[in-house]
């Protein structure tokens, strides 16, 4: 298996690299299939919880329909946990930005605007995005008692054609 002499390096690299990738694919997929708690490789609703693994929090989840109903009834404040740049380029209408990476800096402003009893729904983007869970857990730790997580909120909201806004 040693480096072959007399053959061009790029050709060897390509051939061996391809074989290494194939071997890694075969081993990893087999192990994932055999092991208990292997990750689902095709997207499914149940993959959300599995992929978030130990990062899951105790905050309840809201479904798309529940989020829509609460939005229309003005029954909740939406909290966008994504970075400010993403929030500016588009967010759920009326949502406030509380990025997970600058939570401590942004929290005081939020506390002056929202009652601790308000129902807050944290969201980010992507089935596996854990930013909403992190922000939800921190909100609860800072005295907000009614906090829920809207998994994959931004994508679901956009796909449903519900009101969005941009910030310049």
């Amino acid at each position: 298996m040693k480096t072959a002499c007399g053959k061009s390096f790029p050709r060897e690299a390509l051939k061996q690299g391809g074989l290494i990738v194939l071997i890694a694919l075969a081993i990893s997929l087999s192990v994932n299939f055999i092991r208990s708690g292997g990750l689902p490789l095709l997207p499914s609703p149940s993959s959300k919880a599995a992929a978030n693994g130990s990062r899951s929090s105790d905050e309840p989840l809201v479904t798309m329909e529940e989020a829509r109903a609460l939005f229309l009834a003005h029954g909740a404040v939406f909290i966008d946990a994504r970075p400010e740049q993403d929030y500016r380029s588009g967010h759920i209408q009326g949502a406030l930005n509380l990025p997970a990476n600058s939570f401590d800096r942004a929290l005081p402003s939020l506390q002056t605007r929202i009652s601790p009893d308000a129902f807050l729904i944290a969201y980010c983007d992507g089935e596996h995005c854990s930013l909403s869970r992190e922000v939800a857990a921190q909100l609860v730790a800072n005295g907000f008692s009614h906090v829920a997580v809207f998994l994959n909120g931004w994508t679901l909201w956009r796909n449903a054609g519900l009101p969005v806004a941009k910030t310049r």
Partner: peptide, 26 residues
């Protein structure tokens, strides 16, 4: 810990969702 690694890959917000778990496994 592929599940936790999937969470980290997802936080980068580069890969589409359906590729996150495959990347985390492979």
């Amino acid at each position: 810990h592929p599940g936790e690694f999937a969470g980290i890959i997802s936080n980068y917000q580069i890969l589409p969702d359906h590729l996150v778990n495959i990347a985390a496994v492979v």
